[in-house]
Simulated assay, not measured.
Amino acid sequence: MSTGFTEDEMRRALGLDTPAPAIAPHAEPKIEPAASIPVTAPPKAIPRTPVKRRGPMLRVTLQVSKVYDGEETLFVHDAKTLSRFDAEQEAKKALAKAGFKYFVVESIVTVD
């Protein structure tokens, strides 16, 4: 499947083969004295408020335990995706981080 273009022609067509602008060797950048530059205080940071999630998300509810046939606890994970599979995978990763090893998925419901 040959188009008949060479690599040089393709580079020219994409604009990758343009020469860099020549800089005169005798030209030096002008540096202004430090006294003429005004010193200002940096702008203060504006505290940001957390943005609420707009739109639906999925809530995954699981029964989890750290040992087989041990004490079960309820684990709830809110996923910011609309894919049930991805939400369950995110919940499993969160379980692993929390140190839980065994789980049973109770429900996956949409939360507005």
Rank of each mutant, 00 (worst) to 15 (best):
F103V: 02
V64M: 03
D86R: 09
T40P: 00
R59S: 10
L95R: 07
V105F: 13
L16Y: 15
P19N: 12
D17Y: 06
L58M: 05
K66N: 09
Q63K: 06
V67Q: 14
L74C: 07
A35C: 03
P47R: 06
V64H: 07
V104D: 10
A94D: 05
E28M: 10
A96V: 04
R48S: 04
P25I: 15
A94C: 02
A91S: 05
Q89E: 13
P43K: 03
A94K: 04
R84F: 14
R53S: 10
P42A: 15
V60E: 02
D17E: 15
P56I: 14
G70C: 09
A94S: 03
P38A: 12
V64I: 13
K44H: 13
P29K: 15
V64D: 03
A35E: 07
Y102G: 02
S65Q: 08
E28S: 09
P56R: 12
E72Y: 12
Q89I: 13
S65E: 08
K44G: 04
D86K: 11
V64T: 02
T40S: 08
P47K: 11
L16S: 07
V67S: 11
L74T: 14
P50L: 08
P29W: 15
P43Q: 09
V105D: 04
M57N: 01
I31Q: 10
T73S: 04
D69V: 07
T49E: 04
A27P: 00
E72R: 14
A24E: 02
T18E: 03
V51G: 00
A79Y: 06
M57Y: 13
P43M: 04
E72Q: 14
F85S: 07
E32W: 11
V64E: 00
A27D: 03
A79M: 05
G55N: 02
K80I: 12
Q89G: 03
T61V: 14
T49G: 02
K97D: 14
P33A: 10
K66S: 07
A91Q: 11
F100L: 08
L74F: 12
I31D: 14
K93A: 15
P29Y: 15
F100G: 06
Y102E: 11
K80D: 03
R53D: 09
G70I: 04
T49C: 03
A27N: 08
S83P: 00
T73Q: 12
F103I: 08
A98M: 02
S83L: 10
I46R: 07
K80E: 12
T81G: 01
E32Y: 14
L58D: 03
K80T: 12
I46G: 01
R48Q: 05
A27S: 08
G15K: 05
T81S: 12
